[in-house]
Write a protein that binds this DNA or RNA. Structure first.
Lengths: 269, 269
DNA sequence: CCTCTAAATTCCACTATGCGGAATTTTGTT
DNA sequence: AACAAAATTCCGCATAGTGGAATTTAGAGG
């Protein structure tokens, strides 16, 4: 994503553009037309037309019916499940996180960094409890979400610098603010093992959340596990006393299952 | 995949090649080097090098450590879960299929067509029963697997013709054989709602399986749900009398949940 | 520490590929 | 039927991507 890379002789523009077309889709979309894709990606219509043709002919996109809008196709399903199966902690975490969601009655999430946003990759809803607010595909801002702060706090110094550079100009995440948030998150991780952001900073006052980073051996970057709910169901106090520790314990259990040292949550302090 | 498409002016070669690099990965791989990718895809080394550079810089691939082999990256995880969330039957089917696996003590599968193979996209293992033979990412031959036969049987005439064309020269799937298999599968679908292939035809004598196609509104092509096990745990008789009907009922339940007419399993006969 | 080998990367001249604004066609809406 | 909106196609140009060969890099084994 650094501009330098995009002009690198080695960077295959067409491939990057094609993938950005795929990334334009959200689960809440009921199909996407070329025009909408063009708007979202900023690519010219004719280019999008050729890319969708390609993706469609390879099965990554679908017209459900002739001349309908495009939808994610079977090949994408295959690719994605391949990835989930390869990155083994994803499958292993599922039962643990479902149990956690049930026990704490919170929405439990797995997020990864996507550019300068935190992208929800998987959710586990507590059974028999309504909690329909965040979905796979949503992107939370870096600054102002517990997940984002947890990521900043668990990044190495280099990783952090690069991230701030990437996010340049994005929603008030300046270098100074970033540093402050990072220090705070690091501090919380060391002392208590989880991150609860100051409600003052929250991007949305209706969401309270606790976050814990996880370093997979398979991935070069940490991912974030989070528990969240509306403030009335999840007070600050309960986050600190109950949900935070439980989330933390769950991630440690996952680390144990994966056979990695438990201290990997905090690195290069 | 038809050659005609690859030379079409609209087809973006680089995008297609980049995606084929991603498709080269299997869950059983412990990372892939450029050389191996080059071998699997048939692309020149230098080309692969540039494509992996691109995919890596976009987060679709990972070096876990510097100069390690490539692995699927976080962006791929994001893309895949986006797809699963968009194609709603996938999420809906999970609990039903898990229950089915437990009840029948078979390995339950979801497969989609990938070129001229059936690709395992998801698996549900019966709890507390060892049955470790088929994994996500494995590809079953079209001809000689219940899944493949079920797909052939549920394809429209045009879809079938195109499929046979695609698979041209592949493992003994000739036009005539295909027609025979298709007719048989169609017949089974109409009369009993599921497909059990003649063990004579099986690509592997160690696997017995029942398959049922499912037409999702989101997809232009049917997907296949399957229950399989070793012959000693899953006799022909039990497939017909017990597992087949249960699988069939499960898919019907899924159709009900999705709010689609139940008769979509058999089309354009 | 220094080969040696296999793999990865870079080089470079060529050309097919992808580009994108504009024109055309298709779709479905009133 | 007439219109508007979206999708596709056209086409000459610039260049992005190509791939064989040369170079660099990284482990393995002495």
């Amino acid at each position: 994503m650094p501009d330098q890379i995009k002009t690198d002789r080695r960077f295959a523009t067409t491939l990057g553009r094609g993938l950005s077309v795929l990334r334009a889709f959200r689960p809440s979309d009921d199909g996407l037309g070329n025009a909408e894709i063009s708007a979202r990606t900023g690519l010219p219509k004719s280019t999008v037309s050729r890319l969708t043709f390609t993706l469609q002919s390879l099965g990554y996109l679908n017209h459900a019916r002739r001349h309908d809008k495009y939808r994610p196709g079977p090949a994408l399903l295959a690719l994605g499940n391949m990835a989930s199966a390869s990155i083994s902690f994803v499958e292993l975490s599922a039962p643990l996180m479902q149990r956690l969601a049930d026990e704490t009655r919170t929405l439990s999430l797995l997020l990864v960094r996507d550019h300068s946003k935190m992208l929800i990759v998987k959710t586990w809803r507590p059974r028999n409890v309504a909690s329909l607010w965040l979905e796979v595909g949503h992107r939370l801002p870096f600054y102002g979400s517990s997940s984002g702060h947890a990521l900043l706090g668990s990044l190495s110094a280099e990783g952090f610098d690069q991230t701030v550079e990437d996010a340049d100009g994005d929603r008030g995440l300046t270098a100074e603010r970033g540093q402050k948030v990072r220090r705070d998150a690091q501090n919380q991780l060391v002392t208590q093992g989880f991150v609860v952001s100051d409600p003052e900073d929250y991007f949305s006052p209706n969401i309270h959340a606790v976050a814990v980073p996880f370093h997979s051996r398979d991935l070069c970057e940490p991912v974030i596990f989070t528990c969240g709910a509306m403030p009335d169901g999840l007070s600050l106090k309960r986050m600190h006393a109950d949900v935070g520790p439980k989330l933390c314990a769950t991630v440690q259990e996952l680390e144990r299952l994966m056979g990695q040292g438990p201290s990997s949550a905090v690195r290069e302090l």
